[in-house]
């Protein structure tokens, strides 16, 4: 019988289909892992962004990964509450985003965010603070489009939610 710990290890291999360097655990979307006596695994996930088309793909990938590892039956449940926040992305996840060229989200409780001020977003390429948002909407539902005034490269920022 496959243990909960083993399932968590397997979930390490399930990546976000749109950002393939970060897995579902690092993204913070896995809200529950249960293993029934029959060996059936029930994984509860929460959507990142409401319209995120990657959620269906993630659910399918979780099933595929666990079934291939010998879990007899897998159910992936979706829960909406409590609503996902970018604070649930782990520190490892944030580091990987940055290495991938995506500026990670700031903390939602950041003092600047609380005061309604614009965030200081560091360029993931050169580390400069001299950056400007080009559009609040980026290449996927979770990203905004920014530009670095120092190295002049455009980059994606993971939107803070």
């Amino acid at each position: 019988m496959i243990t909960k710990d083993r399932i968590l290890e397997l979930l390490d291999y399930v990546k976000d289909p749109e950002i393939p360097v970060i897995n579902v655990l690092e993204l913070g979307v896995v809200r529950g892992v249960e293993v029934e006596e029959s060996g059936k695994a029930i994984i509860t996930i929460t959507p990142t962004y409401t319209g995120c088309p990657a959620m269906d793909a993630m659910a399918a990938d979780i099933k595929k990964e666990l079934l291939a590892a010998g879990v007899p039956e897998v159910e992936v449940k979706m829960t909406l509450a409590p609503a996902w926040t970018t604070d649930w992305i782990t520190d490892t996840g944030k580091r990987k985003l940055k290495e991938y060229g995506i500026a990670p989200p700031e903390k939602t409780a950041d003092i600047r965010a609380l005061k309604g001020e614009a965030p200081v977003v560091l360029c993931p390429h050169c580390g400069s603070k001299d950056t400007v948002m080009l559009s609040p909407f980026g290449s996927t539902a979770c990203k905004a489009l920014w530009k670095c005034n120092q190295c002049l490269e455009p980059f994606d920022q993971f939107k803070c939610l």
């Binding site: 962004y49 409401t50 319209g51 559009s135 609040p136 909407f137 290449s139 539902a141 489009l145």
Partner: peptide, 20 residues
């Protein structure tokens, strides 16, 4: 281009809400 992306993102957000 940025606005094309912004509008389709907006559309996708609304579609996700509508689906729920």
């Amino acid at each position: 281009l940025e606005e094309d992306i912004a509008l389709t993102n907006r559309s996708l957000d609304h579609l996700g809400e509508a689906r729920n």
